[in-house]
Design a protein around this nucleic acid. Structure first.
Length: 627
DNA sequence: TTCGTAATAT
DNA sequence: TATATTACGA
């Protein structure tokens, strides 16, 4: 059992996870009670309220009163996302969204707005047992930031999290190569003449920490994409020391990130088109609707994750390449376009062409995004998650945790990070069956490489990039060989989960949304589940601890097997892959990071001509990491 | 002035 | 190499 002490300022006499101060918000008294009960079983210190406004009030009165917030999405007095947003802007607390609706759209919205997790009701105690990780993670980053700012003469005492800690590179990190820089930096020590003068001192470099990025995304989302200009964002972020230029620069990067994401989406649609699939889920995956925050992107972190909220996203994408104000909603309602020509979404947008959007009544926010994992893995072979740089900025903020068990669990491999817009979501068919995955390299890495360090932020920070052992995923394992892979029965899912749960317990990342139908269980089932879970959790913890490094070979086994429709698609892919691989065209390649992967995609895109949209493997060869 | 983009620096 | 910063035209 975890029994480490942390730097939390609460009830330090208690062993860590116990005593975690959780604020639970849900307008439904029954849900709230259930949630409270479960939380208490986890030995958390629970405060409940049925009103979002009340929650906000309590939070504002004393920001240090809680460690974490769990909020329902749908509430009469205030939308959960609004609460999330305000919390993100005003205080720095991890927020977990809770909803009976596992619609990826909502999940995306939550993530893009800064939620560190999104749980689908009925929530299971297993899921709640792990929520403390979000607090740890946040503290980790905070302390990291504070450390880096200590050597700055202009740091403002007491400015706390709202202050940008100007950071210079640590000379030691560069070793032999930074002789010159070192001299410059050491001027103040060595000479003491000119460099002490603040006027001549170079402006400290802003480090876009996860937290800072979270604020950024929150501000962007809050403003709405068309109004999210540097100055306004800056005002909204209200961060000491940050300049409009800083924000502009970050915004630039953010937009590029979004663009990349959208390209991926487009390419996926192209791929679907190449397969001749007219109405597959893939085609619907192109919706830009969901791209809102890379706040994520995950980060592309917190993706987040490109955190695009449905509305914000549209806006963002709409102006990615042109000042023209594109209304995303219009886009999403546009007729499906056969992507046989330019894969460049930007162009499409700029010309006001409809972009592969869902023609369905239920456009998925994640259209397109989900297939990244599939595409890449299939095409490139084992994925290497080492050093996913994206996460640094965009990912971690939006971390989903395995909320359910789940199927296979590609979700355990991909998770979002915050802002890492790098959310890979798979939304097949109707909302009733969606399996969402996302990346959170940060969490992923942390969870995998130094689970024991999880409670030791310092170590973790130092190591997460260097010591990660990247799981090698067998491409074939990602594809179900059975096109009609049946949905796993619940108990099966649970069992599966047990093999990965520990993994997720040590691993913050992981995001997955159970198919809705699996959530529609009777209360009796729920109770049983909870009881069973309680009985087995401890031993699972132990078992899992031993196994956390292992990714089940069949981790992706059911990734694409939610519906017959998917099965068909899957089959197509299988055929495609097989034909290609038999021809020797399939080259296993690994990416060191998600970013590499993205870059590879961009590169490929650059070489791509309008006529060359069949996603042949030759094209993918050009994808290669170093190419 | 501010924004967006490209070039440049680190 | 990736990202932050700066320069510059709109």
């Amino acid at each position: 059992m975890i029994v480490e002490k942390t730097n939390l300022d609460n009830e330090q006499s208690v062993k860590f996870p116990a005593g975690l101060r959780v604020l639970a918000v849900d307008d439904d008294p029954i849900c709230l009670k259930l949630l409270e009960t479960l939380l208490r079983k986890c030995q958390y210190h629970v405060t409940t309220t049925s009103q979002a406004r009340m929650a906000l009030k309590m939070l504002r009165e004393n920001k240090d009163r809680f460690d974490l917030i769990i909020s329902d999405v749908h509430m009469p007095d205030m939308d959960g996302f609004k609460l999330l947003e305000l919390v993100g802007l005003e205080m720095d607390l991890p927020v977990i969204m809770l909803s009976a609706n596992s619609d990826p759209k909502l999940v995306m919205q939550g993530v893009t707005h800064g939620a560190c997790d999104y749980l689908v009701k009925p929530v299971r105690i297993e899921e709640l047992r792990n929520i403390w990780q979000h607090v740890i993670r946040r503290n980790k980053f905070d302390s990291k930031n504070q450390n880096t700012s200590t050597d700055q003469c202009n740091s403002q005492p007491g400015s706390g999290e709202g202050y940008v800690s100007p950071t210079r590179e640590n000379p030691d990190q560069h070793g032999k190569f930074n002789r010159k820089r070192k001299e410059e930096e050491d001027d103040s020590e060595d000479n003491g003449n000119e460099s002490e003068d603040p006027a001549t001192q170079k402006k400290p470099r802003v480090v876009w920490s996860i937290e800072l990025h979270r604020k950024f995304v929150a501000a962007v989302n809050h403003l709405g994409i068309d109004k999210a200009v540097p100055k306004r964002i800056l005002d909204m972020m209200n961060v000491e020391g940050l300049t409009r230029e800083n924000v502009a620069s970050h915004l630039q990067k953010y937009r590029l990130y979004l663009k990349r994401i959208s390209h991926v989406t487009t390419q996926q649609a192209n791929m679907a088109a190449a397969f001749g699939i007219k109405d597959s889920p893939f085609m619907r995956m192109g919706s830009l609707d969901g791209l809102g925050d890379f706040r994520t992107l995950s980060g592309p972190g917190r993706l987040g994750n490109v955190a695009l909220s449905p509305y914000a996203t549209s806006g963002v994408l709409g102006r990615l390449n042109s000042p023209a104000n594109m209304n995303l909603r219009n886009l999403t309602q546009s007729p499906l376009v056969q992507p046989t020509h330019s894969p460049n979404l930007s162009n499409l947008v700029g010309k006001t062409h409809p972009v592969l959007l869902s023609s369905s009544q239920n456009p998925s926010l994640f259209q397109g995004m989900p297939s990244l994992d599939l595409d890449q893995i299939q095409q490139k072979g084992p994925l290497n998650f080492n050093g996913m740089d994206d996460s640094k900025i965009f990912a971690a903020a939006n971390t989903f945790t395995d909320s359910g068990a789940v199927i296979g669990s590609s979700s355990n491999l991909f998770s979002s990070n915050g802002n890492n817009p790098m959310m890979l979501v798979r939304g097949f068919g109707n909302t009733s069956s969606s399996n969402m995955t996302s990346f959170s390299s940060e969490s992923f890495n942390t969870g995998i490489t130094c689970p024991s360090n999880l409670l030791d932020p310092g170590k973790c920070n130092e190591n997460w990039q260097n010591t990660i052992e990247s799981p090698k995923i067998q491409p074939n394992s990602l594809l179900s060989t059975n096109p009609f892979h049946p949905q796993l029965p619940l108990n099966r899912m649970r069992d599966n989960n047990s093999s990965t749960a520990s993994y997720s317990q040590n691993n913050p990342i992981i995001a997955s949304v159970l198919p809705q139908d699996s959530r529609e269980r009777s209360c009796q089932d729920l109770v049983s589940d909870i009881q069973n879970t309680n009985q087995t959790t401890n031993q699972r913890w132990v078992e899992q601890k031993q196994n956390y490094r292992q990714i089940p070979n069949n981790a992706f086994g059911s990734l694409n097997s939610q519906t017959p429709e998917n099965g068909i698609f899957e089959q197509k892919i299988d055929e495609f892959i097989n034909s290609r691989s038999s021809g020797g065209g399939f080259v296993h390649q690994s990416y060191d990071s998600l970013d590499d992967l993205m870059n590879a995609m961009i590169k490929r895109e650059q070489d791509e001509t309008a006529a060359n949209c069949d996603f042949g493997f030759d094209d993918y060869a050009a994808f290669g990491q170093g190419v």
